[in-house]
Design a protein around this nucleic acid. Sequence first.
DNA 1: CTGTTAGCGCCTTCAG
DNA 2: CTGAAGGCGCTAACAG
Lengths: 341, 341
Amino acid sequence: MPPNGSTGPTGTAAPTMRDVAARAGVSAMTVSRVLKDENVSAATRDRVLTAVRELGYRRNEVARNLRLGRSSGMIGLVVTNLGNPFYSQLALGAEQVAEKHGLRLVLGHTAGLAQREYELVDDLVSRRVDGMIVVPAGSAQQHLDPVSLGGVPVVLASSPPAGIEVDAVLVDDFGGARAATADLLAAGHRAVGFLGNPPTLFTGAERFRGYWAAHEEAGLVPREEWIRRGPDDIPTAAAAARELLDRADPPTALFCTNNRMTLGTYREIRRLGAATALAGFDDFEMADLLDRPITIASYDPGEIGRRAAELLLSRLEQGPNAVPGLTRRLVVPTTLVHYGR
Amino acid sequence: MPPNGSTGPTGTAAPTMRDVAARAGVSAMTVSRVLKDENVSAATRDRVLTAVRELGYRRNEVARNLRLGRSSGMIGLVVTNLGNPFYSQLALGAEQVAEKHGLRLVLGHTAGLAQREYELVDDLVSRRVDGMIVVPAGSAQQHLDPVSLGGVPVVLASSPPAGIEVDAVLVDDFGGARAATADLLAAGHRAVGFLGNPPTLFTGAERFRGYWAAHEEAGLVPREEWIRRGPDDIPTAAAAARELLDRADPPTALFCTNNRMTLGTYREIRRLGAATALAGFDDFEMADLLDRPITIASYDPGEIGRRAAELLLSRLEQGPNAVPGLTRRLVVPTTLVHYGR
DNA sequence: CTGTTAGCGCCTTCAG
DNA sequence: CTGAAGGCGCTAACAG
């Protein structure tokens, strides 16, 4: 038996244009035209619209897009950790821009796993998203090459392209880290420790570079014993901080490269009742409510989302006749903020 | 001229099954079968897979779903404020469950506007999402009725259905508020103020009810002058708190119904150097880092997302032959947590 | 102004 | 095991 076909009253399947047409006594084309606001006589239009209402008809945008040869009107957003407020701000920024252009956001969460990212990207392309904003989970990016993706434009967030030609929105990792570290040095500290994520991550490497540069510019050289790279969650960061502070010659100040680490370190300093000064990267709500001073290299994650979406949109407008090899790279600046007096 | 059609080397459009078939010297049907892992001779299969690889072909899931009469394999998630960490946790929970079933999440952000919610829901239905999880922006819900939505299942989060038959996942607003308030009363406070969102919101009303009940159960009656309902952002909450604390007879403790208000109030208490005790609803990261004690009715927002997704999935499995009138309502419990010693 | 034909990319059904 | 015909819901392109 045919799956649907009838205007059946209890019909479970959604009504189609033909159902509307039958009910209004016109052809499907006329219904299509009415829905597109094309020239149709007022009387016919009314009959059609009535039928639409009575049937609760909604045009199937999926079929429509297929016929029009358009893609889905959706853009993919692939992030490493949806649960992190940072990424939700980013998502919000992207959503706001996409929304204005009638585009919807499809979400993907990789949990930092390259394999998941790989599958997700593939799935999104199969679903014919118009484009994708990706926060890469690892350093390998070949699977993000628009060429192998059938031309679906990709914009990278937080990480620059490596071996592929795509646009990217970055944060001024180097500048922010340098400024934050310099702030500690300017306050007279000569023993500034470093707690950062692994150097394989672009942001980690850049922020470390900034830390080092600030020292050099002050005629100093950081001591390797005060450097810890690797921890990337609050408890591990706390443990690393403790290790540094437990030394015979503990650093008098610490610079942390992201908000997970800053929080873990803050907790530890506070627990030990140490007087260690603290600077970090990534702002967080309530940083101003803490009971000890802290310096943060701050920026707006929403800005990354907005910019990335804008880059993507401009690619979409260009269409496939884009000039290849002309990729853009935007850098969102950071601001130094002093909290807690 | 035909838009595509050729296996053109620089062909801009994505290759179709026919392109693959032509290249492999078979019919499109055979390609389809290979991709579905149906019975095809090993030799043919190899030829097809080679052509697939060479062309970078990906099956168009959109067209496939259309033909199969299936919907999109996506579920809509409509929230009031993506930027709020609460909702990103919720989204993460929902994503994790959806992911396991091969479903993708499509995001919608209403900014609390009923009109946006209306449009979004309509758009998502037109895009043929399999179902939707909605955090209602207002109290009107008629537009969320699956009946008028062509049978697309809806699950409400944070708010119970009003006049429509849908599943819902709620928080124990009443119990949490009662417990938090009772905690303040048990500590000897007899002047507990209330700072909450408008009573038109379900959560606001329920939490107020809990606050009141705790008083009653202690043989007390809250004083109207200590009650402020309406503010829903940090600065407004701070102003309302200040007003209460500036009174000749200020409350000695305050209960706040969400984390925005708790933060605003906390800031104000701290600024004034007041000794006011504080309890709130909604946990937040770093609550433990504050320098004064605070009691929180805590729960896991991710749990709401997971539960909501599970309810939705079970509806999807039932199919349209669901027993109507048998809606489910889940309540996520809260736990009282004491921070700051 | 309205209808007919054809086909987007894919898959079910029925032949071979 | 493989192919040809037909159609999912919709809309260009052409009639009339």
